[in-house]
Amino acid sequence: MPADADPVTVLSEDESWSLLSSVSLGRLVTILDGQPEIFPVNFVIQRRTVLFRTAQGTKLFSAVMGDRVAFEADDHTAAGGWSVILKGRAHVLSATEEILEAEETPLIPWIPTMKPLYVRVVALEITGRRFEFGT
């Protein structure tokens, strides 16, 4: 990399959504009792929202009861990487048509536990960065 080249590139909203669509593991960040909680989740992008499955518990409670959540996903190679962060609101899908639409996605729990609930994160803000690693 030339000495004057910037190793960090700010991504457009479209580039950020495209990169999010290329991976299936991310991290959901919530606040519970004033403390941050981070949950790894497998997910899909559907209509520029993040969709994941879960069961009753801390993840669900803190995601939908809080005012806001954050979501992060990234990837890398030997040459560089990227990171996308979105901030938004989460809600449990309850309308029949929303659930049917979610069931059409390839979203399957990675571990053999019951995850009957779909949660959608609607982005209020999305930012992304691409990184070029030094040599």
Rank of each mutant, 00 (worst) to 15 (best):
G57Y: 10
E72R: 02
T54Q: 04
A78K: 09
R89N: 13
T58Q: 15
H76V: 02
R68D: 09
T49R: 15
T54I: 02
A90R: 00
F52R: 02
A73E: 09
M65L: 05
L93H: 01
A70T: 07
V69E: 01
G80E: 03
R48I: 05
V64L: 13
D74M: 05
T58G: 09
G88E: 03
W82H: 03
A78D: 14
H91A: 13
Q46G: 02
T49V: 14
K59I: 06
D67M: 04
R53C: 03
A78I: 07
K59W: 03
G88A: 07
L60N: 00
G81W: 02
R48S: 10
D75F: 11
T77L: 08
R89K: 15
T49E: 15
T58M: 14
V64K: 02
E72L: 07
R89S: 12
Q46C: 04
Q56F: 12
T77C: 06
H91L: 13
I85C: 04
V50M: 04
G81N: 07
E72A: 11
R89F: 09
S62E: 07
A63M: 08
S83T: 13
A70S: 15
W82D: 11
K59H: 00
R68K: 12
V44S: 05
L86M: 14
T77F: 05
A55Y: 07
Q56R: 12
A63W: 03
T77Y: 08
A78P: 07
D67G: 06
W82P: 01
L60H: 10
R48F: 06
S62Q: 00
L51A: 05
V50Y: 06
V84E: 13
R53K: 15
F71A: 02
T49P: 12
R47P: 03
V92P: 00
A79R: 13
R68E: 11
G80Y: 01
K59M: 12
L86Q: 01
A70Y: 02
S62P: 06
A73F: 11
G66W: 09
F52I: 00
L86T: 04
W82Y: 02
D75L: 04
R47S: 15
L51W: 08
G81R: 03
G88L: 00
Q56L: 13
G57V: 10
R47C: 08
V84T: 13
M65Q: 09
V50S: 01
T58E: 15
D75C: 09
L86D: 07
D75Y: 11
L93G: 09
R53V: 05
L93E: 11
A78V: 10
A79H: 11
G57S: 09
I85R: 10
T54W: 00
G66C: 09
A70L: 06
L51T: 09
M65I: 01
A70C: 12
K87V: 15
L60F: 10
L86P: 05
